[in-house]
Design a protein around this nucleic acid. Structure first.
Lengths: 233, 233
DNA sequence: ATAATTTATATGTCTGCACATAATAAACTG
DNA sequence: CAGTTTATTATGTGCAGACATATAAATTAT
């Protein structure tokens, strides 16, 4: 017996969670439909719908029209990570931010990058390498390719004043993208850029963003040793 | 003029996105309130609410009662990662799964772990070390502490048959938790466990889960070289 | 028996209305 | 004038009813 009245969608969600956790509804089970739950809880179907949709979003329920709602067979936990602008991340921690441009050039990228960005053969794009620093210490090394044919405006930007990270976020809307997280062993190059020892374990983010006309940018961020990304679930 | 009718919340969301992307509504701007937008779009306020709430969830808008809705000053992108059960992750890739228990013992954990799990002084808890393998190759090394005082049932489980990862997910509901991602340089111990070279960059996940009575478990997962975690945004 | 079509049903979403809640702005008061 | 109270306002959420849509299941046609 809950004792508490079930009137708002949050309490419906909590009650459903309780039934899942108490194994009353086991993984794979079909649960009663919205109308039945609504009448049981004494609330509107819309309220039940809100609660169940929310649980489906977090991966605990699987819903299909006509087929009904069932408890997810293997609860895939979903963690939501915040990906801020690097400058904000650094100043947000109370450190002084500085961006150092290492190089820019317009060249034909390596095969794998050209393939990933779906470029035409021998298409030249912008390559920008830079370093974000916190309190003068290297924080993250940014190796970025920007498709200057899709984003012509990029040709007029002075990237010694503003990092491409920030310019892109503020000026180029994108429709889709992907992110990958991995780890890397510091080679001589990374060690020098991040002033760390070779062989250190480094956290790496690879990100690509797209708009309808094609790939906008693809970037690898290599973080200084000790970097960690944290979230609650 | 859009030309397309704005009747469902998705199209409202799209139109709002367009206005943000076209800089009609700039970062920091207060946008019209729900009632105004509803009358402009010719739909119900609830529909506008659904769209704006969704955009606020993804971090593009900031809403506060009475204060109104404004475009986020710095769009903090949110990436959602799926954290599956390790066995499912491995079999899902088509590999054969095997779990090898390395050791179990009930001991007083190191200071930092005791602090993180808020244990009483000299409180003994369960320490389980194991290895998940894909096609016979080491996939991830699991170093786990379980608070057997909060979860007494754990004392009767044979972890040579089932990994603690799986047993916990299936048997112990938890209310909250946190995850951190980082990178590590393989020392001699990690290298031997994962049969890789010392000095390799390894991807690491640290996770703790809690229920009302206290910390349930805290685990460090060290993945074999080459592991990456991927998501779309 | 198999394929195409229809039907039934659970979820998805819209509408219009109402009230709750939080937070700002305005009015008031000692 | 500072501190407190009150009104105002935008979002948050609830309700009942309706229709849309996907799709499993039943039915009919080939």
């Amino acid at each position: 017996m809950t004792g508490t009245a079930i009137k708002n969608w949050q309490s419906v969600q909590q009650e459903v969670l309780n039934r899942i956790n108490s194994k009353l509804w086991k993984p794979g089970d079909l649960i009663p439909n919205e109308a039945q739950l609504a009448s049981e809880f004494g609330c509107a179907r819309a309220t039940v719908n809100r609660a169940l949709q929310n649980l489906a979003d977090t991966g605990l329920l699987e819903r299909r029209r006509k087929a009904g709602t069932r408890v997810a067979t293997h609860p895939v936990r979903k963690a939501t990570l915040d990906i801020p602008i690097i400058r904000k991340e650094i100043t947000g921690k109370g450190y002084a931010y500085r961006y150092a441009l290492v190089s820019t050039e317009t060249v034909v990228p390596p095969r794998d990058m050209a393939a990933r960005m779906r470029l035409k053969p021998d298409e030249k794009i912008l390559h920008i390498v830079g370093l974000h620093m916190a309190n003068g210490e290297p924080y993250v090394f940014e190796n970025r390719w920007i498709n200057s044919n899709v984003v012509p405006a990029v040709r007029d930007v002075d990237f010694s004043k503003q990092s491409p990270n920030e310019w892109l976020v503020e000026n180029i809307p994108f429709t889709s993208g992907d992110i990958a997280f991995s780890a890397l062993c510091a080679g001589d190059f990374e060690a020098e850029m991040l002033s760390c020892k070779t062989g250190e374990g480094l956290f790496v983010i690879d990100r690509s963003t797209w708009k309808a006309e094609g790939a906008i940018t693809s970037v690898r961020l290599v973080f200084a040793p000790g970097y960690r990304i944290h979230t609650e679930i």
